[in-house]
Design a protein around this nucleic acid. Structure first.
Lengths: 349, 349
DNA sequence: TTCGCCTTCTGGAACGATTCAGTTAGCCTG
DNA sequence: CAGGCTAACTGAATCGTTCCAGAAGGCGAA
């Protein structure tokens, strides 16, 4: 009974005078041995401080670890501070937790497609947010299930929101009362990283930004229908969905001379719209009289705020739940498209 | 070259006519074999699609998994949507990532102290947010390093913020201009779950709520110094740091008849204070003339908002970084106390 | 009685790596 | 040229389980 080494299943078996197989069954397959013996084994185990079969050994033997990895396109720091990504993760976590699985968080290391070795322990992978490089996919165990969220990987299931119609819808709503000067604030939509004013030439490039590209196409379709030439509508780009990055770009927009300043801003995220809301208020602009604002995502902060944000609610939590269920095989792993909902707040009635 | 089974290190060794030890060294100890042979092994490995040593087998053999688990007191869903917990996690993730470790997220299942089996694979544990039950500590591998954040576990290192002086400081600041009717909104500080008005009898109970208890003591000390009898100052309690839970409680406070309504609210979190801010604005109350508000935490939303929130900034990200460094042994694992900073915004100048 | 069939338990071979104690071969030194 | 030393590589034990094939014993049916 020395504490020099951890107690193992084998030790326990020897102590009890039964085989390791039986002890293993006591923990994993109650129907494979008599209740009395099982009772005795479990009792002795807790008496001797045996904490149950070792997870490392079990996962080697069975080939399964009960760990699901979520690969985040951005750094973990960024993703964890982004409310939309956090909501997604919480949906994933909810399902995994209920099923006795655990969540491993990985970030695709600055696009090098390098994952730490322990990543390969996972039984399945959920890729969130951005197309991973081919290298990254090569790193993953070939036969492991994989589900992507917010974009497609050829031949793999994915879970999406239908961004284009959602953005068409909210823009249409905003344009019912015609603005004098509409403007668009994109989220990471240029080929080269860029914070500030962009022309149509800069955007729509690169194969990777599919979500935000769909959003822009939706905006443009509604603008065109409303009689605006999309390529005449001024656009700005923001690289990162955080307040500090949004602030200077939006300040630049709001400080334009009045005859150039937009009176309607279609924003690709709630964070962007909320930053615009704050900066406009600080400048004494009236919302929605002087400036109307729309967002995208439907995060809580946007609704617990005065004025409430007009936005498109996407249920990121549900997106996470579905991705997790697909990975665990609880629902068929086939492309899934989630509904969105237009929320009309006071920021753009 | 059939794909029926994954390629193993042994297969690769046979293919190359070298021993498994040598192949292992090629991957783990470059100095143990000639560069030429290493080159040949690595080349052949990638040619044959061998993805490197299997993490499960390695972790069994070496006893280490390069996985660090964070145990969150609340459900993962709640924690991931709480900006303070998210910031903490992002600090942890940042350090782990840089050191080639990965982050496993666990929640202490509704206080049952039950962890999924895979939890025991972790090399170390960071406990965040609430005292875990003794059962939970028993579940953990006995010799695994453990660091707690925001509270102490006997004999284990921890990382803290000094809540009492911080709250004393912000309350003192607020009380420099004497309020007519100060009030306090607690965060989860009653023995029984409760949303709404509480008396001093209800609070300060139970051994577990140490953070918020320290905060209240700080508030009380400042109030006493300012000539208020702490037990005469009305208090409300909020069970969960989310908008939907805050809203009705705060609405109840703001809808009190004017002669009972507080004109200064000391809140234990920024979320609470921000909800109060929004609801006050909707009721046409002027901030800070009719109502002054202070928060706690220093989350981004509080500063990118007009009026800016007066609050105490605690660097949760740094707290996470330190916890992670302790677990990895990069800094000595000894109790650590972080500084806080008073931020004076327009909500309580 | 004998045969077959459960139920209950056992022995031992995997799982895929790491690592320790050698073994060779080559080189330097005196 | 003997002796010692180092660099480069190998063989086999080991990590702690799971699970397959089979053995032992009891029981009912023919």
């Amino acid at each position: 009974m020395t504490h020099s080494r951890r107690m193992t299943l084998k030790d326990l078996a020897r102590e009890l005078g039964v085989s390791t197989a039986t002890v293993s069954n006591a923990f994993n397959r109650p129907d494979q041995l008599s209740p009395a013996l099982r009772e005795r084994i479990l009792g002795e185990a807790s008496r001797l401080g045996y904490r149950g079969p070792d997870a490392k050994a079990r996962s080697l033997r069975t080939g399964r670890s009960r760990i699901i990895a979520v690969i985040l396109a951005e750094s973990l720091t960024y993703s964890l501070n982004d409310p939309v990504a956090s909501e997604f993760l919480s949906g994933v976590a909810e399902v995994l937790d209920a099923q006795g699985h655990t969540l491993l968080l990985l970030s695709s290391r600055q696009a090098q497609g390098l994952l730490p070795g322990s990543a390969s322990m996972a039984d399945g992978f959920i890729v969130y947010g951005l197309m991973p490089s081919g290298d990254l996919l090569d790193t993953l165990p070939a036969q492991a299930p994989l589900v992507s969220a917010d974009f497609d990987i050829a031949g793999r299931p994915s879970v999406h929101v239908d961004d284009e119609p959602a953005c068409y819808g909210i823009a249409r709503h905003a344009l019912r009362r015609p603005p004098r000067r509409p403007g668009i604030i994109n989220l990471r939509l240029t080929a080269e990283p860029c914070n500030g004013r962009v022309t149509p030439d800069h955007t729509l490039l690169g194969p990777e930004q599919t979500i935000t590209r769909s959003r822009l196409i939706g905006f443009h379709r509604a603008l065109e229908e409303a009689g605006f030439a999309p390529d005449q509508v001024p656009m700005w780009n923001i690289e990162e969905n955080t307040f500090p990055v949004c602030e200077p770009v939006i300040a630049g927009i709001l400080d334009l001379p009045e005859e150039e300043r937009p009176d309607l801003l279609l924003c690709m995220s709630d964070r962007i719209a909320l930053t615009a809301l704050t900066l406009a208020e600080r400048r004494g602009l009236r919302i929605p009289e002087d400036l109307r604002l729309t967002g995208f995502d439907g995060i809580a902060e946007g609704q617990y705020r005065s004025p409430r944000l007009t936005t498109v609610r996407q249920d990121s939590t549900e997106k996470g739940r579905i991705a997790a269920r697909m990975i665990l095989g609880l629902v068929p792993a086939e492309p899934s498209l989630l509904a969105t909902e237009l929320i009309v707040g006071e920021s753009c009635p």
